Amino acid sequence: MRALILGASGGIGAAVAARLRDDGAEVITLSRRADGFDVARPEQVDKCLGAVDGPFDMVFVALGILAPAGHAPEKSLSAINADTMAQVIAVNTIGPALILRHAARLLPKDRRAVVAVLSARVGSIGDNQIGGWYSYRASKAALNQVVHGAAIELGRSHKNSICVALHPGTVATPFTANYADRHKTVTADSAATNLLAVIAGLRRDQTGGFYDYAGQEVIW
C-alpha cells in the first residue's frame, strides 16, 4: 500500500498519514509548511508533484481554508469581498483541481486506487438551510463538481479508480477552533479512522460521489 497525502501538516492530513504508517503503508507527504506545496501557486503544485513518483493506491487531498488570515466567513451578502473570495476559491477549488491534473500519472491502471478529496457538508446546495459563509460554501460546491468531473475522466483510463469528495465532520483542529462551539467535534485521530474506513469500503460504482465520515451519501 502506497499513499500520497497532500496537506499533511494539517490536523486531518497528519492524522491520516500517521494512521496509514501505523498500518504498515508507505506514505509520501507534501505540505506548504514542510515542502513549499502552496496550491495557490500553480508552478509549485507542478514542481512538487512532478518530483513524486507513483503509482499510489491512495491520494488523499486534505487542504483548505475557511477564510484568509485576518478574515472570517461571511455572515451576510454585504460582507462579501472579491479579493477574499478569490483567495478562498484559489485554495479550496482551484488548488485541488491543479492536483487532479496529475492524478492519471499518479494512479495505477491495473488495480483499485482511490483519490479522496476533503470537501464539506456546507458545500451542499440542497443541505443549505441557513445561508451565509458564501465564499467557503461556493468553493466547496465548486470543488464537488471538479471531483465529479475528474471521476468521470479517470474512469475512462483507470477502470478501477475511485474519486470521491468526503465530508470529515467537524474536527477539533486549529482550522475550526473559532467556529466549532455549536457543533459536536471529533479528534483528528477519530476523523482519520472514520475517513479511512469509508475509503476502504468504497465500491467502484461510488466514484464521483460525495460521502460523509460514516459513508452516507451527501446531497449535492
Score class of each variant (00 low, 15 high):
Ala72Gln: 15
Ala34Gly: 13
Ala51Tyr: 06
Cys48Leu: 11
Asp35Ala: 09
Val39Gly: 10
Ala62Arg: 00
Ala69Leu: 14
Leu77Lys: 12
Val45Cys: 03
Leu63Met: 10
Ala62Pro: 06
Phe60Cys: 07
Arg33Ser: 14
Asp46Thr: 08
Leu49Val: 01
Asp57Leu: 06
Gln44Thr: 11
Gln44Phe: 04
Ser31Tyr: 01
Asp35Cys: 05
Leu66Met: 14
Ala40Glu: 12
Pro68Glu: 01
Ile28Leu: 12
Phe56Gly: 04
Gly64Thr: 02
Ala34Trp: 05
Ile80Arg: 05
Gly54Met: 00
Pro55Arg: 03
Ala51Asp: 14
Gly54His: 00
Ala67Gly: 12
Ala34Val: 13
Arg41Cys: 10
Asp57Ser: 13
Val39Cys: 05
Glu74Ile: 06
Ala67Tyr: 03
Leu30Pro: 02
Arg41Ser: 10
Ala62Glu: 02
Phe37Gln: 00
Gly70Asn: 10
Pro42Cys: 01
Ala79Arg: 06
Ile65His: 05
Lys47Arg: 15
Val61Asp: 06
Ala67Thr: 07
Asp57Lys: 09
Ala51Lys: 08
Gln44Arg: 12
Leu30Met: 04
Asp38Gln: 12
Thr29Met: 08
Gly70Thr: 08
His71Val: 12
Ala79Gln: 11
Ala72Pro: 14
Val39Arg: 01
Asp57Ile: 09
Ser78Ala: 15
Leu30His: 03
Gly50Cys: 06
Ile80Leu: 11
Ile28Glu: 13
Pro55Glu: 06
Asp38Thr: 09
Ala62Cys: 07
Gly36Tyr: 02
Val39Ser: 03
Ala67Ile: 07
Val45Asp: 01
Lys75Pro: 13
Val45Ser: 00
Gln44Leu: 10
Thr29Asn: 09
Phe56Ser: 08
Phe37Ile: 00
Leu66Asn: 10
Arg33Lys: 15
Cys48Thr: 11
Asp53Met: 15
Gly70Tyr: 12
Leu77Tyr: 15
Ile65Lys: 03
Pro73Asp: 10
Ala51Phe: 07
Ile80Ser: 08
Gly64Asn: 03
Asp35Glu: 07
Ala51Asn: 13
Ala72Ser: 15
Val52Thr: 05
Val52Pro: 00
Ile65Thr: 07
Ile28Ser: 12
Asp53Tyr: 13
Val61Glu: 04
Glu74Phe: 07
Ala72Lys: 13
Ile28Val: 15
Gly36Cys: 05
Ala79Asp: 13
Leu66Thr: 09
Lys75Arg: 15
Ser76Met: 08
Pro42Gly: 06
Phe60Asn: 01
Ser31Pro: 00
Asp57Trp: 09
Ala67Val: 13
Glu43Lys: 04
Asp38Ala: 10
Leu49Asn: 00
Asp38Trp: 07
Asp57Ala: 10
Gly50Lys: 02
Arg41Lys: 14
Gly54Ile: 02
Ile65Cys: 09
Lys47Ser: 11
Leu66Asp: 03
Leu63Trp: 02
Asp57Glu: 15
